[in-house]
Nucleic acid binder design. Structure first.
Lengths: 174, 174
DNA sequence: AGCACTATACACACCGTGTATACACCCGAT
DNA sequence: ATCGGGTGTATACACGGTGTGTATAGTGCT
């Protein structure tokens, strides 16, 4: 629900219509992948259904109609709760890389290859992010650093796992 | 598609029915959150639709009917491609934490609180994982280490961001 | 009769993508 | 001068993947 909450947060600054929200979102959060228009409206309709936003009039000004949406009290409460609640690190436990290694071992394929492919891909990504970070503003730098820290974490895990492959193979084989 | 691929991988060991797959999955990959039955069958039906598995007979043995599924050649090819393709680190760029901090700053709330809440939750999770890691087998240890490395990465980012909050606030305010 | 276990099916909700639609405005070609 | 096409604004809708919850149905045990 991160995107829904982000849109709600933007609506706290005043009522807006969908197209406008998309641009505001891209400017603030979408540096690395702009929001699709479709997603804006489907998200808005869900927020509307759940009573977190309300329609605030239809302007038929220059160009096509604009449906303005305003955040409701329930919406503000929801943003507040979202900001006050820590993100759960479940995704870190649902580890696709680990699944790949185990399946490679189970099926007699090379688990080392799996690790190597991932490592070299990550190293390439890190070079690119380091470049992007160099000529970005502080916001860009923070986003890149976040990704870089996590890529480093992946690399540490890849090394650790590579060093334990024999023992893991024995354990999986049982 | 991680779960679909994991099920395909398990089917490489021979045809199985859904209930059996669920248990095999939980044993190998589901330590930290067992697979819901519903998901097994909906995933299987998608694999069937895409021709990656095929029905391999219905046994009406003890108890209810069992539909056995076998992996197809297309399925094996698909597993192979999955194992040979590195995972994209996009999720690290779509950073919910960053969104929270920016929205807190935009709405005049305390971004420090957001960071603090997340940090103390992470520290608690890390203590728990360290405990779990101590009395697990190698597979558990690797899973816990993966999560721990990423939690550390989050913590590093939280510290970095906390130290830059004033500058970020100025940049966002523009 | 009630409960637990095995096994599947189905309806539903969320999230995201792609495509169609509609209006307005500008600009060049006829 | 006007016709048509491209561009920008704005929304709606249908669809696909993913995951959850619930219903169903048979078997065996107590």
């Amino acid at each position: 629900m991160a995107i829904g909450h982000a849109l709600l947060g933007l609506l706290e600054g005043g009522p807006r219509h969908g197209y406008d929200l998309k641009r505001a979102y891209d400017e603030r959060f979408g540096q690395h992948r702009p929001l699709a228009y479709g997603q804006v409206y489907s998200t808005l309709s869900r927020l509307l259904k759940n009573g977190l936003v309300a329609e605030a009039g239809v302007e038929a000004g220059d160009g096509p109609e604009r449906r303005r949406y305003a955040i409701t009290d329930a919406g503000v409460t929801d943003v507040e709760r979202w900001l006050g609640t820590p993100e759960k690190p479940e995704p870190y436990l649902q580890n696709t890389l680990y699944s790949k290694v185990v399946l490679a071992l189970l099926s007699g394929r090379s688990a080392t290859d799996v690790l190597d492919v991932q490592r070299s891909a990550h190293l390439g990504t890190m070079r690119e992010l380091t470049r992007r970070k160099a000529d970005g503003d502080l916001a860009d730098q923070l986003i890149c650093d976040f990704a870089l820290f996590h890529l480093e974490a992946d690399l540490r895990w890849l090394e650790l796992t590579a060093a334990r492959l024999d023992k893991l193979a024995a354990e999986v084989g049982k």
